[in-house]
Simulated scan of single mutants.
Amino acid sequence: MSLFSRLQFFTTVNHLRDLPATRAEIAFAGRSNAGKSSAINTLANRTRLAFVSKTPGRTQHINYFSFGDDAYLVDLPGYGYAEVPAAVRAHWEKLLGQYLATREPLRGMVLIMDSRHPLKELDWQMLEWFLPTGKPVHVLLTKADKLNRQEATQALASVRKALAEHPNCTVQLFSSLKKTGTDELELAIADWLK
């Protein structure tokens, strides 16, 4: 039985003081429109567990999804969407930075990037907030179905090379449309939850 098949919505949080008591958390982070909600839905084999919108920046709070056994997938607000008001963006940045740097039950982060546009400035900022914790990062290069085989291989190799000096970082290709890469991601996350 898939780890993600048990995934259920648990709660939404907008302030760190409201974070629930948990045993283990896996954060899902990524730029707005990188395919984060689609990836969560694909992993859970459901269509509307995480809300997918044509409007980037819809996830504005921290959303908790339960694996059961006090373990959670934590869907963080998407970042980098220009039309979000400056005050909202500042709140997100503070919330994300503090959460990633200080959250004790956090076991690792899945950093989601569009495979056609990886490692943008804000992706590096997320890594800068999180890498000092020493916890693992698994980079999920989404929308791989939009690349041909050679382009996908090049994107994967390029990101691996850029992150080579960070031994806690792993990288893979993923496609929600073709449902490829789910087993590899599930293995990484199951290892973190042990």
Rank of each mutant, 00 (worst) to 15 (best):
A144S: 14
P77A: 09
E184V: 11
L131T: 11
Q150M: 13
F51D: 05
K143P: 03
E151Y: 08
L111C: 08
V13Q: 04
G108P: 05
V139K: 01
A157V: 07
A50P: 03
R149A: 15
V110F: 03
A90C: 09
E128F: 10
Q125K: 14
L16V: 07
Q60N: 12
W124P: 03
N45K: 15
D18P: 06
L106E: 00
A87E: 15
G181C: 09
A82L: 11
H61P: 02
F10D: 13
Y81R: 05
V139S: 04
K94W: 14
P167K: 08
P136G: 11
L96Y: 03
E184Q: 14
A82E: 10
D75F: 01
A90I: 08
A87L: 13
G97A: 14
P167I: 06
D183W: 07
T42F: 00
L95S: 05
A27K: 01
G68P: 06
L111G: 01
V13I: 15
T11L: 14
L141W: 03
T142I: 09
R58W: 02
F9E: 12
G134T: 08
R6N: 14
G35C: 09
V171L: 09
F9A: 10
W129C: 06
F130Q: 02
Y79K: 04
P20K: 08
R89E: 14
Q172M: 11
G30K: 03
V110Q: 02
L73T: 02
A34L: 09
G35E: 03
F130R: 01
N45R: 15
A144I: 05
N14R: 12
L177N: 13
K143W: 05
H138P: 06
L43D: 00
E121L: 11
P136A: 13
F67G: 00
K146P: 06
D114A: 09
M126F: 10
C169G: 07
C169R: 04
L3E: 11
A21H: 13
S37Q: 06
N14P: 04
L43T: 00
H91Y: 10
A34H: 02
R46S: 09
E104F: 10
Y64C: 06
K54C: 07
A86F: 09
A155V: 04
T153C: 11
L43M: 11
A157S: 13
A39K: 01
M113Q: 12
C169T: 12
K36M: 04
L173W: 01
T153V: 13
I40A: 02
L100F: 05
F28S: 02
I62G: 00
R31F: 09
T182P: 03
N33P: 08
I189L: 13
L3W: 07
L95A: 08
K143M: 07
F28D: 02
V159K: 03
I62N: 00
G108E: 05
A90D: 15
L173A: 04
T12D: 12
E104M: 12
D18C: 08
T142Y: 02
P132Q: 09
F67V: 01
C169M: 10
L3F: 11
S2Y: 06
R149Y: 09
T153G: 13
E165P: 03
L156C: 10
A71M: 15
